[in-house]
Design a protein around this nucleic acid. Sequence first.
DNA 1: ATGAAAGCGCTAACAG
DNA 2: CTGTTAGCGCTTTCAT
Lengths: 318, 318
Amino acid sequence: MSASLGDVAALAKVSKSTVSRYLNDGYVSSDKRERIRAAIESLGYVANRNARLLRSNKLNSIALFVPTVEHPFFSCLADRVEKFLYERGVRMILVSSAGDIAKEKEMIDMVGEKMVSGCIVVTHNLIPNLPENAPIVTIDRHFGPTIPCITSDNYEASLRALEYLYESGCRHIGFIGGRPLVPSEVNARLAAYLDFCRKYQLMPVYSYETFDHGQEYEVAKAFLQANPNLDSVFCGSDLLAYSVYQLTPKSLILSRFKIISFDGITEKLFSYVRLTSVAQDVTALAKMAVEVLLDRLAGKPTKEKYVIPTRFIRGETA
Amino acid sequence: MSASLGDVAALAKVSKSTVSRYLNDGYVSSDKRERIRAAIESLGYVANRNARLLRSNKLNSIALFVPTVEHPFFSCLADRVEKFLYERGVRMILVSSAGDIAKEKEMIDMVGEKMVSGCIVVTHNLIPNLPENAPIVTIDRHFGPTIPCITSDNYEASLRALEYLYESGCRHIGFIGGRPLVPSEVNARLAAYLDFCRKYQLMPVYSYETFDHGQEYEVAKAFLQANPNLDSVFCGSDLLAYSVYQLTPKSLILSRFKIISFDGITEKLFSYVRLTSVAQDVTALAKMAVEVLLDRLAGKPTKEKYVIPTRFIRGETA
DNA sequence: ATGAAAGCGCTAACAG
DNA sequence: CTGTTAGCGCTTTCAT
């Protein structure tokens, strides 16, 4: 068995409390401090986290729930969330829920079991009966007025991108997006598109169905084939936009066909072209999610919605 | 405060041990069983995991260490590992270590603290002084003879792919790969290439440097520009291969220029072309890693190396 | 089949 | 500054 705090105390000839204080920034005289240090080293002592958490109820780990970590947006988000949590000494449990509602419901159990102190979630399902003060924040999803939602300025950003297309002369602007299964800020992208069409008296031409990650290319292909007369497409994700890009003859791009994407986070994957895009600030989203959740855990009041500004990036496709 | 096992016992008028047995598949008479069930329900009782782990030392969570979860190979791996662990009731802590050795060393602490029961790791650094029986398995990395390594049949698969190019008439075959910083099975891909060149008396033309994720396109571009006379390239990753694909005029591909990639897992991202590739079976790698680690935790003997077969997928590029 | 009692390893009052 | 005394919530002998 590994050494316990008691073993350290015995070897250093001090009380367990003194060792505990040594471990937790308490005041310990320098001679004892040194004896404890030596004892810890010679025993190879490592504090047992379960015991510590059981007793102290301190901040534990955080769970991140995503539909699938294989999707670039979510793997990027996972990376950032992990980094911000790590900076604060908090570990991240990742749940790739694949839309499985039973799995997503476990966020409640994990908190109840005190396995994690809280959750950052972006799920496919609504979780019923969340307590008002549940230690949960969401990205994009609306779970209710008391559960904070961190999101980009989807509506305004989409409108700005669409206006940009309009100013560039586009009058046959299509929209492709993936429809979320739950109330989500993502819907604001379509809402902006529809409002935009109404404003300029344009005929809306769009595809907005629910599909799995991996279907982007097929969805884009079907949309373009069904609507050959477009002069531009506003896409709800990078993956859709790259698909449209691949499906369009290079000679037409920019001059006679424009593409704008939403997300703007896949430059590491698709370095061969800089898409014109509404770039979500995933780092800021992650940071805000972490901060709001920690505030909430600390009992501070939190808002219903936190909006992170996007950046419009002029690339080579619009 | 939330209800404890003691509260349940009191309400159900049984002892704490009986409740504990109820919770752990012990024999409990049916009347008490029902009383306990009712008490648990009315109190909304959830077992405290920390207390349980402290006392029982049972199987806890597992940590997965990857260089960066943003890379498609690792996000895919993370997804599969999470799923297999979840099936067995084990949670996954994800550490995206970014090559930070201090962060990677924490795998030792996390085990020592009993925060996790074990780790599945693919790191950028060697972790010194790992105990012989450390509850750790690696993917591709060699940490020493007593730490199991799960890997694909890199050497044989690479050779097979190269022979395929040779049989297709290629005589100017280049190789691009990312050099790992630690002893890794990945190096077998280059080794196979060099052996292959020796066998057929071909001049090796390759790039094998360490670079960060996101640099693939630049690396491929520099390589192709420096070596314009190649008739084919064998790439150490999908991302390199897609970069080569993008950099090559479509009219040349297959007829006068062939590309083979290693990994073969990014079809969800790059649906517009089916690369000819050596496809790693990430699902099998993940499953094996989980099984070997759990075996090890159960005290069963484990081997030094587990080799997962790859599949050669004939796509549109070779 | 059940209960009493003893701790897992730690932290948190409370005295001194 | 330090030690003593109690537990945190659970599982696990050991009786019965």
